[in-house]
Amino acid sequence: MNTEQLHLVLQSAWNALPTLLAAAPVTLGFALAAMLLGLPLGFAVALARLSGVGALRGVSSVFVSFIRGTPLLVQIFVIYYGLPSLGITLSPVVGGVIALTLNAAAYLSETIRAAILSIPRGQREAATSLGLTGAQTMRLIVLPQAARVALPSLSNTLIGLVKDTSLVSVITVVELLRSAQLVIARTFEPFGPYLTAALMYWAISSALEVVQRGLERRFSRGT
């Protein structure tokens, strides 16, 4: 790469920056929405998989297996392009959030289930002997400890969601990647906008990693 080419790349990256900065909140918003919606759904799925009711275990296991065994991109296509054939039409934003939420919930459920199972059974038995109900034992004994165990994986899931939001660009959601593509369509210079988008994904993920480490230190002091 000569000096002129480097100048063109840097110039295109700089010109793309305002557009991509405007799209960054969309990317972060999709990731946070999927995480906030996926957490309670993932918790419910985890409880279903730990349930003594065979039907609940079966349905939840199939859900987790299907989501984890198929690409997220295919799931987005099924929800956004497939559902209209059944009379269900969703906007790109709603379709994208639903796809990301279902995907996140499947992975979060496994994290939550593993964290719950990591708590020694003796603690539950002790709580029962003290007269606590199953719900009280879960709320007061199991979940506070399970949250500390699950925190790193939960944080990693959020960081992964930030990167996965790039896939909703295929259904015309104008997030970081789609914004870079729109800039490229005007300028015909791909390297600068794509590099800028990559650096912004990295910056968001790095910021979330800093928050994750801070939360881990705070939780570790609380033990």
Score class of each variant (00 low, 15 high):
M35N: 03
G96V: 08
F30S: 00
V149K: 06
E209M: 10
T70V: 10
S166G: 08
L208E: 06
F66H: 06
L117G: 00
F63A: 00
A46Y: 00
A48Y: 04
F77M: 14
P193A: 00
L176V: 10
S155I: 09
T128I: 10
N15T: 11
A48M: 13
Y80N: 04
A55M: 15
T19E: 12
P71I: 10
A198F: 04
V94G: 00
L108A: 04
L177H: 00
I204K: 04
V74T: 13
G131L: 14
R217K: 15
A33W: 12
L39R: 08
T133L: 09
Q181M: 04
P25Q: 11
E209Y: 09
L176A: 04
R186N: 11
A115H: 07
S109R: 01
A135T: 14
L32K: 07
M1Y: 10
T27H: 03
T223C: 00
P144V: 07
K163T: 05
L8W: 06
P144Q: 12
Q145L: 09
V168T: 11
L130M: 15
L56S: 01
R68Q: 14
A115Y: 12
R178G: 03
L47Q: 15
A16G: 01
P18W: 15
R148K: 15
L208I: 13
V9T: 13
Y194V: 13
L6N: 04
Y107H: 02
P40V: 07
Q136T: 08
L182D: 13
I204S: 02
I184M: 14
T172M: 12
S91I: 12
L72R: 10
L6R: 12
I98Q: 05
S61L: 10
Y201R: 09
L20C: 08
A126V: 15
L41D: 03
W202Q: 03
L143Y: 06
R186W: 04
I67Q: 15
S166C: 09
W14P: 00
I119E: 06
Q75A: 02
L143D: 07
L208W: 05
G82H: 12
S61C: 06
Q75C: 07
V59P: 03
V93K: 09
G87D: 13
L50M: 13
G38E: 02
V9P: 01
R57I: 09
A22C: 03
F43N: 01
L161E: 08
E110G: 00
L36I: 15
V59W: 09
G95M: 11
L158D: 07
V94Y: 07
T196L: 15
V59Q: 11
I119C: 02
S118T: 12
G42M: 01
V78R: 06
P152T: 08
T19A: 12
S118E: 13
G42C: 03
G29C: 09
S166K: 15
M1T: 13
E125W: 08
E125D: 13
L154E: 02
T3D: 15
V93H: 05
N2M: 05
R218W: 13
S169I: 11
R124E: 14
L182G: 00
V211C: 09
V74P: 01
P40N: 04
R178W: 00
A104F: 00
L36N: 01
L208N: 05
F63H: 10
T70E: 11
L215C: 10
L37W: 02
A207W: 10
G42F: 05
R139E: 09
T187G: 03
L47I: 09
L83T: 12
V26Q: 04
L20K: 06
Q145R: 13
